[in-house]
Nucleic acid binder design. Structure first.
Length: 447
RNA sequence: CGGGAGAUGGUAGAGCGGUUGAAUACACCGGUCUUGAAAACCGGCGAAGGUAACACUUCCGGGGGUUCGAAUCCCCCUCUCCCGGCCA
């Protein structure tokens, strides 16, 4: 997922957002979409401890709180004066109807009208400043999320399946891919640029088989299949948290406020953008296959060889829109479902709880699933399941109605699974000494 | 890309300068009736902010303007629908 900016300072925040937000606000009205300011205000200590896990300094929270107070003060000043004006205008109408003299009223209104614009402007500026800052504050991590800086501080929860012992030197997937004629790296680069590749023959068929296998299995777990646009507008990317902070990671359509999605999470979650869902229809379990597009801006030099880190890759994604009371339960189910997919493919893997520093921007809790790659002799991420609690729901205005009240849902997302990396894992784990690859039984009926 | 129409609450659909946050219908929720359900009748029913609760503010696609006052008038933008061209 996205790299979290470390050691974030106020100035850096303001610089990062200014440009993108300016552009976006030309096209979209700035609705009040942000983290829970009231919670921060009422639980300042707790909030700052939580956010420090994600590297947010206390100065940022102080600034946020000050802006919030400023906005409230400016608003109430403006609103009471506006109320006065509305009252007089109403009277004006009545006077006119009765044929009374309105001159005095008009004078009163005129006096108020001189002051109103500056008060409104004051409130508007406070609101804009507040939002600029609030939109780049990451989600609060759960209490169970371990302290830590980076992936070295993540905690292994469990291992599933023992890595196979090879009686020969296992090859890396790029060797196997070329030897079997499944992957053509050169021509992928020719067609687009580096970090693109071409699958062919059985490689291409396996990719398709995996997609179908994943979708079918997810359906059995209760997820409804969707086919969604892979181009989404800026407002949707704002809703799930990719914008404004991570624009550099996205492919943008030239001249339009449209982006290629970096994950189907964006489209699936935002299906319910600005909607109020009846509590009785929760949870909504959604799944979709899409290609995903990422600039990998911060990853220069990493995984340049092979198919691990591409600008375009296939993924089957799960998304859940959940009642707040049920999201932990659903989270566990999603982790289990993703893990079961790997088990069915006979791929050794482990579950890892991400530490605060490695947690994504919108996540309050994330479990990564890492698959064993014998060629590299390492576990590598193949799925990432996150509970964002109400973080995305607030931004995307996804609510549910219960007992007449509108409340924010919880949203969750997780890969099930990254298709290209699964293909790699199959090649490396099920390779034979002669370089051929044994296809797992569950896939055979899909070929 | 060219020509026409439109954008109002969950949906349909009135309103076209004042007390209309918005008629009406359907949907939905509560009640009466019923063994239970349906029907009928009565009542409620958009959202955000704000408040202890009221008050109050904002929102009729988005932005700006006219006016004492705008869902209603004017300008710009976006989107949708119909007709024509192009095209999977």
């Amino acid at each position: 997922m996205f790299e979290l900016a470390k050691a974030i300072s106020l100035q850096k925040y303001q610089m990062i957002v200014k440009h993108t937000l300016d552009i976006m606000l030309q096209f979209f009205n700035p609705r009040l979409i942000m983290i829970d300011l009231k919670y921060i205000q009422n639980n300042f200590e707790e909030a700052s401890i939580k956010l420090s896990k994600k590297g947010v300094g206390q100065d940022v929270l102080n600034e946020l709180n000050d802006l919030f107070q400023l906005l409230k003060a400016a608003n109430s000043k403006y609103e009471s004066m506006k109320a006065e004006q509305n009252k007089l205008s109403k009277l004006f109408g009545e006077y006119k109807q009765k044929g009374l003299d309105t001159n005095e009223l008009k004078d009163g209104i005129d006096k108020l009208k001189v002051q109103l614009p500056s008060l409104l402007e004051e409130a508007r500026i406070a609101d804009e400043k507040l939002q600029n800052l609030a939109l780049v504050i990451p989600n609060f991590p759960d209490n169970e999320v371990p302290e830590g800086k980076d992936e070295d501080d993540n905690i292994e929860l469990k291992k599933v399946l023992e890595p196979r012992v090879f009686d020969f030197q296992p090859k890396e997937h790029w060797d196997l891919g070329e030897k079997n004629g499944w992957i053509d790296f050169e021509r992928g680069v020719k067609l687009a640029k580096s970090r693109f590749s071409v699958l062919k023959g059985t490689g291409a068929k396996l990719e398709r088989a995996l997609i179908n296998f994943f979708l079918d299995t997810n359906a059995k777990a209760g997820f409804e299949e969707f086919n969604v646009p892979v181009i989404n507008n800026a407002n949707m990317l704002l809703g799930t948290g990719q914008l404004p902070k991570f624009e550099d990671d996205l492919f943008k359509i030239d001249g339009e406020e449209l982006y290629l999605i970096p994950t189907a999470e964006v489209a699936l979650t935002n299906l319910y953008n600005d909607e109020i869902i009846d509590a009785s229809s929760l949870p909504l379990l959604l799944t979709a296959y899409t290609p995903c597009f990422r600039k990998e801006a911060g990853s220069a030099g990493r995984d340049t060889r092979g198919m691990i880190r591409q600008h375009q890759f296939d993924k089957v994604e799960m998304v859940a829109i959940s009642h707040p009371d049920k999201s932990d339960e659903i989270f566990d189910m999603m982790v289990q479902n993703a893990s079961d997919l790997l088990t069915a493919l006979e791929l050794p893997h482990r579950l890892v709880m991400l530490c605060g520093g490695d947690l994504g921007f919108g996540a309050s809790k994330t479990v990564d699933i890492e698959v064993w790659l014998p060629g590299q002799g390492k576990y590598r991420e193949i799925s990432s399941i996150s509970n964002t609690r109400d973080f995305q729901a607030r931004r995307a205005k996804i609510r549910y109605k219960e007992d007449g009240k509108n409340l924010f849902v919880h949203t969750l997302n997780g890969s099930a699974l990254a298709v290209g990396r699964t293909l790699i894992a199959i090649m490396e784990n099920h390779q034979q000494e002669d370089g051929t690859i044994e296809i797992p039984d569950v896939l055979k009926k899909y070929l």
